[in-house]
Nucleic acid binder design. Structure first.
Length: 749
DNA sequence: GCTATCAGGCTACCT
DNA sequence: ACAGGTAGCCTGATAGCG
């Protein structure tokens, strides 16, 4: 590896230091730069080293201005002095070092082979409790290291103490002395391991490389000094290829998706209790470790690649988010071009980001074109037939936003908002000698935004272009090799272009956001989507079914792909008067049933039914609803009678568990505006009161509706169920498969 | 006093 | 603190009705 294993900032004697781990050795050095921020004015009243710097401000790229750089001893100081007059004041220090001195971290490479420890634990849960607590014993631990030979320790059925098991595992842990600890859900496994050790008076200091006790913070942030914790669940959570393909982002679902094969079925929670101390539980536990390293193999290459490619320590690469990716990629360009972001989008574009909003969550500017159409319903009685489309095609743009950004030269050095006109729903382009002027109607701003773009390469658009080219190469390679690692690299570049470069532009508070790009990209994107709709409607009248951002579903018995593409290219050039690299793919589906925007089912050519949207597959639904949707979907697509299915479900003769709905606690319990107004907070409070479960963000509560109101599954009796409520649920779902064709057509065509 | 409707709050999902 | 967009379900307030 060309970078260190981990780097953390720390303050010593009032100065910023960097704690660096590489090749098993630890050093603490003075940070190579002091934390700092910029401003246009001098702050004489604070204790800072002030230097002058001439640079191009983001707000007006063509005019160099004088900035004052205020260097202060610690990160805390930057935070203290942060105000509307300070710039680039919210960049994590570790990344500030990376941006300013791009080769700094590569001076401390971890060159030895990385030692891994994979592990997974199973824990006892009290009957009727929702989750195990730190008071519950660990029943089984499986682990392995680089050789992938799985070891397992477990306790007997009647053994109430996990002390010996923990001792054995901690000894193994110390013996393996891993650089990288690999788990699925680090916020569960690691705190549980540590807390259980504490309960058993086993010293956890030795788990860290330095002898510093592992840290389990208030917000369950975990850290083991000298080691990197790689949480595969984080990769699974952010994995775009999974969306629409798995029911949840759990270990089982995701590993199954990536081809995990096992003779054993996963155990139910009840079985996991019944099988304590048996081979069955041990095998299950070991299977989870096999799943773990299968997924590790899917994601690791990309992380390792990122660490070296972006020149960041491994501990940053394992939890790299879009914000940080944007800071690095865009920050590199800013450094090379001598650009300073003189304020955030919110400060520079108050017209967009500080508007008086009707609702708290209103968006800042208009986004994608989204909607459903209904075509040619001349026989309104023929609903079930007329809402079936066979075959169904999806025409979609590849990487639409990044391609727009690159093809239209959208970049801070080329693009600026010159005027806000009163709203006129007519996208217009003026071609002036050395620039294009785009009139972008924005129905959120209720203005037409006039955006000028110079006819020249922009530095950010060129960067996006590089990412797209690399992506195309990896994609081509993947098609040849079918190696998931090539696919991962291709996705890596897509993510970089999408979120890391385009995504941050519309952010109100990101240090390097640049709103004109975001407004222009979305505006042009809407035009592109509409263009595609128009072409399809022209060639195949009344064929368009649904549009979402960059994809259009349409139906036609036979299509002529070449004709579509030719027309597309011609119209595209005509409209934008420019050589563009926008391209479309057209993929077939056997059939589909469309309910509402973003909500539909598709049958692929090989017969698999794919469910889209919250109405079709929300995790909050109960088994009853989920099964009914599946049964009705199959019946609908097969043109079978649905009456027997409906009758069966209306009897409501199912076990209590099948009635349980799920809701996730999304915020801290104190943040709820009205604690009674949300099922999540109500269930969290019930669980706290009756089951002694601490309310934590991310907890999922299973609840049912009884005649007394909403109750946790664990506290409810089947005889108390509010059956009319569930009958209502069933009727709603039945209508979903019948009423779709009655929905009104949007009047766009 | 009852019911229908709406707005606000929140979660889940799509691109 | 990457973005916007659609949809569903809950509660409480309010309008409309008799």
């Amino acid at each position: 590896m060309e970078v260190p294993l981990r780097v953390d900032p720390e303050v010593k004697y009032g100065k910023e230091k960097l704690s660096i781990w590489a090749n098993g050795k630890h050093i603490v050095i003075d940070a190579p730069i002091d934390p700092y921020f910029y401003s246009y004015g001098k702050f004489d009243n604070i204790s800072a080293k002030i230097t002058e710097r001439k640079a191009k401000p983001l707000s007006d790229y063509d005019t160099e201005k004088l900035f004052y750089k205020h260097s202060v001893p610690t990160r805390k100081n930057v935070e203290m002095y942060r105000s509307d007059a300070t710039f680039e004041d919210n960049i994590p220090f570790i990344l500030r070092v990376r941006i300013d001195l791009p080769d700094f971290y590569t001076q401390y490479p971890h060159t030895k082979e990385l030692k891994f420890l994979f592990f997974d634990i199973e824990q006892y849960t009290k009957p009727d409790a929702m989750f195990p607590t730190y008071d519950d014993r660990i029943t089984s631990i499986s682990w392995c290291t680089n050789d992938r030979k799985i070891d397992c320790g477990y306790i007997g059925k009647d053994n109430k103490s996990d002390k010996n098991l923990l001792k054995v595992f901690v000894d193994k842990f110390i013996d393996i002395d891993p650089d990288v600890v690999v788990v699925f859900n680090k916020d569960y496994d690691i705190p549980t391991l540590i807390r259980r050790c504490e309960r058993n008076h086993i010293d956890t200091k030795l788990l860290s490389k330095s002898g510093i006790k592992p840290y389990v913070g208030g917000r369950e942030k975990v850290s083991i000094d000298g080691r990197v914790i790689y949480d595969v669940a984080y990769s699974a959570m952010t994995d775009q290829t999974l969306s629409g393909n798995v029911e949840n982002r759990g270990l089982k679902e995701v590993s199954n998706y990536y081809g995990f094969k096992s003779k054993r079925k996963p155990l139910t929670p009840q079985q996991m209790l019944d099988y304590i101390g048996t081979k069955t539980l041990v095998e299950y536990n070991m299977d989870d470790v096999r799943r773990l390293f299968l997924l590790f193999d899917v994601y690791w290459e990309n992380i390792y690649f990122n660490a070296n490619d972006l020149k960041i320590p491994l501990n940053l690469a394992v939890e790299l988010n879009t914000t940080d990716l944007g800071l690095i990629t865009v920050g590199d360009e800013f450094r090379e071009r001598n650009v300073i972001a003189d304020g955030t989008n919110e400060q520079r574009y108050p017209e967009i980001f500080k508007r008086v909003k009707k609702h708290k969550d209103d968006s800042n500017y208009q986004g994608a074109l989204v909607g459903v159409f209904k075509k040619g319903k001349m026989q309104p009685k023929n609903y079930s037939l007329s809402t079936r489309y066979k075959p169904v095609w999806k025409a979609d743009y590849g990487s639409m936003y990044p391609t727009i950004e690159s093809s239209f030269d959208l970049s801070p050095d080329t693009t600026k908002i010159v005027q806000y006109l009163s709203y006129n729903n007519n996208f217009k382009i003026e071609d002036n000698k050395d620039k294009f002027i785009y009139y972008v109607p924005d129905d959120v701003l209720d203005k037409t935004v006039v955006i000028e773009v110079k006819k020249q390469d922009g530095f950010l658009s060129k960067l996006v272009q590089r990412c797209l080219n690399e992506r195309a190469d990896y994609k081509k390679r993947y098609k040849k090799t079918n190696d998931p690692k090539d696919k991962a690299l291709s996705v890596n570049r897509k993510v970089k272009a999408n979120g890391g470069i385009y995504g941050i532009q519309g952010s109100a508070h990101h240090a390097f956001g640049f709103a004109p790009i975001a407004v222009a990209t979305c505006g042009i994107g809407r035009e592109c989507a509409q263009l595609l709709i128009d072409i399809l409607e022209e060639l195949y009248p009344h064929s368009v079914i649904e549009v979402d951002t960059d994809g259009v579903y349409f139906s036609a018995e036979e299509i002529n792909k070449k004709e579509i593409l030719d027309k597309f290219n011609k119209k595209l050039e005509n409209k934008f008067n420019k050589d563009l690299q926008l391209s479309i793919d057209i993929d077939p589906y056997a059939e589909g049933y469309f309910y509402k925007a973003k909500n539909y089912i598709l049958r692929t050519l090989d017969g698999k039914i794919i469910y889209h949207g919250a109405a079709m597959k929300a995790s909050s639904k109960n088994n009853l609803s989920r099964n009914l949707i599946k049964d009705l979907a199959v019946a609908k697509l097969d043109e079978k009678d649905t009456a027997p299915i409906i009758d069966k479900y209306l009897k409501l003769d199912f076990p209590l568990e099948d009635f349980a709905m799920n809701k996730r606690l999304g915020m801290n319990i104190g943040s709820y505006k009205n604690p009674e107004g949300s099922i999540s907070s109500r269930m969290a409070l019930q669980a706290k009161r009756h089951l002694n479960v601490k309310p934590e963000i991310g907890n999922i509560y299973h609840y049912v509706k009884t005649k007394f109101g909403y109750e946790l599954l664990q506290l409810a009796n089947k005889k108390d169920l509010d059956l009319s409520y569930y009958e209502g649920q069933i009727r709603t779902i039945v209508e979903m498969f019948d009423v779709a064709s009655e929905s009104k057509i949007d009047d766009w065509l």
